[in-house]
Design a protein around this nucleic acid. Structure first.
Length: 333
DNA sequence: CTGATTAA
DNA sequence: TTAATCAGG
């Protein structure tokens, strides 16, 4: 998933306090939904579902995450993917295959009574279908949270919005938005800070990556960062075999990007991928306004159709409504 | 993941 | 106050 440059970014991440995150967060919707769907499951991997068998994990995630964001003065805008570029097709098909295999392995693990393996495989089988997208749209609209339809990659659109000053930072677990030029990326924007890792719960804190300090720290331009990405591999191209972040950084700083590609991957033309990162399709045709949640609408959707507990839904929404009537941060309603 | 409950 | 556990749909 995403560009594998984590190992050269360790010094470029700064822990960030919630107070410093008040602002407009351009959320990579696909990434957020994927996280919700892969993690919000029962121990054997079964996702939350309504009586009719419709998956509801993502709706639970959106609801509670949104309320928390608003309480902390963070105004989220969800940025949805549009049509992927042709050269992503390989990655898309590969992922489809991986998901299908995970789906089989999930069933097998349940047969064998291996719960942990079942959970792992179920997570890996996560797919975002039209029901997931449409129900997410519907819930966000009822919550009064704006969403933007990207012409192509959501991460590219989010980066564009931050560059234009329309959003304060991009939110994703992937680093692609940096290659797309987002001045600021925030990761681990989870409220609880808790995460299961091999059975143990560990705390994960929000971290911020500022593109300009990253450039300073590593001594590379954004263009060179894109070259590094292409060398290690992105969603849009296979990387050079045996080249990870550290090696790619050296190659690019020596100005040997083109020669390395020519030597190691003679059949690959990196120009379209480079161009896609540097000037991706984006749009300015969107409106950002935050409205108070339509409480009855949310209840009608989540409780009547998706079998959520009315008590839980109303009490979480009340936290937003109360906030909205206060005159502190909430001039924006 | 998140909120609620329980244990420490 | 905080850390672990459970259920949610």
């Amino acid at each position: 998933m995403g560009v594998a440059i984590r190992d050269i970014l360790s010094d470029c991440k700064e822990p960030v306090a919630w107070e410093d995150l008040a602002g407009i967060a351009a959320v990579d919707a696909h990434n957020a939904l994927y996280q919700f769907l892969s993690i919000i499951r029962q121990p054997d991997g079964t996702p939350l579902m309504n009586g009719a068998g419709r998956v509801t994990s993502h709706l639970s995630g959106i609801l509670f995450r949104t309320v928390n964001f608003l309480e902390k003065g963070i105004r989220p805008v969800y940025v949805f993917d549009g049509r992927p570029p042709e050269f992503k097709q390989g990655t898309i098909e590969e992922r489809r295959l991986v998901r299908a295999r995970a789906d089989e392995a999930w069933k097998a693990a349940i047969q064998e009574g291996d719960t942990e393996e079942a959970y792992r495989q179920a997570s890996a089988s996560t797919r975002i279908d039209s029901h997931i997208i449409e129900s997410s749209h519907e819930l966000l609209d009822l919550l009064g949270i704006p969403r933007v339809q990207a012409p192509s990659e959501g991460e590219a659109q989010a980066a564009h919005m931050v560059r234009k000053g329309m959003a304060t930072y991009a939110v994703s677990q992937d680093y692609d938005s940096l290659l797309f030029g987002s001045p600021v990326l925030v990761r681990n924007l989870t409220v609880s800070g808790r995460r299961k890792s091999r059975g143990r719960t560990i705390t994960v804190n929000p971290e911020r990556i500022v593109l300009s300090s990253l450039s300073d720290r590593l001594g590379v331009t954004r263009e060179q960062l894109v070259e590094i990405g292409i060398l290690v591999g992105t969603d849009f191209n296979q990387g050079v075999r045996g080249v990870g972040g550290k090696t790619a950084l050296k190659i690019v700083k020596k100005g040997e990007f083109a020669s390395t590609i020519a030597e190691k991957m003679p059949d690959f033309d990196p120009a379209p991928v480079r161009e896609f990162f540097l000037a991706p399709p984006v749009t300015d045709d969107y409106a950002l306004d935050w409205r108070p949640p339509d409480v009855e609408g949310v209840v009608a959707m989540l409780c009547d159709r998706y079998d959520f507990s009315e008590d839980r839904v109303r009490s979480s929404l009340s936290r937003v409504s109360v906030k909205a009537t206060q005159k502190t941060l909430d001039a924006w309603f």
